[in-house]
Design a protein around this nucleic acid. Structure first.
Lengths: 226, 226
DNA sequence: CCAAAAGTGTTCTAGTTACACCCATGA
DNA sequence: TCATGGGTGTAACTAGAACACTTTTGG
């Protein structure tokens, strides 16, 4: 039985969520679009395989990478019995350089303009989207998609994009500022407006110390969940 | 590469959370306690394998079974390279009959009185516990551990046991009743008190229609999360 | 000077918490 | 009759939601 790893790689370009896909240069389904994947090698753990595969395509190390789900349907790969351990990654799209690896024909696609994908990769993407929505509602992970410096309008677009909705600007700002996670910078981003919007950075200490958001079925659930 | 499935099987006896473990009758680690597991067969999906393994041990079908995580460290199985797809199950402990399968020496252990487990099974159990806490804070899944009819004192013990805390009885009752998920029965459970506590049943319609609890990072997140 | 986006406060509402006494019954 | 556990209401507080105008500045 073969064990493969597939990576769902998310980016955000300031307007929309993107996925990094590759055009397969090999059979089966040659020329069709698919997630970046590969087989787990005997000398590496499954997590290591995921990191390797991600780095092969993007050149990036130390990115947010989380195991999503293992897909093990009987005929998901028509050629050989393969189970796929999927991971989703959140990367700063600005750090990605197309030229890093020419071995793969990789391209960013907007989530709502995706080509058909091979095998059960569409299902994987759907699950990843869902997990991301779920997780981002509770944990401050979306910042992994932003550059080091970002503005509140960008931050709000990031959240609005994920949930496909609009939030009240005042309430949004207040809620996020009240976490104490953000440090205002002196400079402004002046490209997207005349007035310009102040940059913020994450308070890395607060960010890395287990920040938990506010679940409400259990009183003070942040006490209990790790 | 071998692909195994391991099941973390939870029960609740009215007082404490329990795990169903088996004493291995085979090498390696013969006689030691472990999770119930087995290899994925060529003719079955991974999900099917999990259901099969669970049924082999408990005789139960259609129980709550959710994929947890895939463990793929290099030397997790000292004999052969094996990756383990883990699932956790929630079963009504009263439905379990010890005699269903004598092939395995199975026993329920309280979560805080567990024997040493083989390989990385302890890590699996920890992760399952955590996932259960997490999930139960947001979704009404703990009822899978209760018999069809249960009392509010039992329900509260169930939640207090999982989070290892005490809740205010009045607030607890109000919050849970306000979900409209519970139908009061005419009869009482009279074993554990003189006065007796009314039985309740789940409103199965409400229960099966995607009940979502109340996350609070995103306004009205139940609109967005599936 | 005006169009476009940034930034900022207050009020109302609803949900959460804290808290204590009476009830029913078997022994 | 009393010990044990079951059942219930209210008031204070807090967090979330709704809502609109002013500021800045490049063109």
């Amino acid at each position: 039985m073969l064990v493969a790893v597939d990576c769902i790689i998310f980016g955000f370009d300031g307007e929309a969520y993107k996925l990094l896909l590759i055009q397969r240069g090999f059979a089966p389904e040659k020329q069709k679009w698919s997630l970046m994947g590969g087989f787990v090698q005997p000398h590496e753990s499954v997590d290591e395989a995921a990191n390797r595969i991600l780095e092969q395509l993007t050149g990036l190390k130390n990115v947010y990478l989380e195991q999503l789900h293992t897909f093990g349907a009987l005929n998901r790969d028509p050629v050989e019995r393969t189970i796929a351990v999927t991971y989703f990654a959140l990367i700063d799209i600005q750090k990605y350089e197309k030229q890093i690896n020419n071995e793969y024909n990789a391209e960013w696609f907007s989530l709502n303009e995706m080509p058909d994908l091979i095998f059960d990769h569409k299902q994987m993407v759907d699950m990843a989207k869902n997990r991301l929505r779920y997780k981002a509602a509770l944990h401050p992970i979306l910042f992994e998609l932003l550059p080091e410096k970002f503005t509140f309008p960008q931050l709000q677009a990031l959240y609005e994009g994920l949930y496909d909705t609009v939030f009240d600007k005042r309430n949004f700002t207040r809620k996020f500022l009240s976490t104490g996670l953000f440090i205002k910078q002196r400079d402004k981003e002046k490209e997207s407006s005349k007035k310009g919007a102040f940059f913020y950075k994450l308070d890395q200490d607060k960010y890395s110390s287990d920040f938990q958001a506010f679940l409400k079925f259990i009183p003070n659930p942040e006490k209990f969940l790790v």
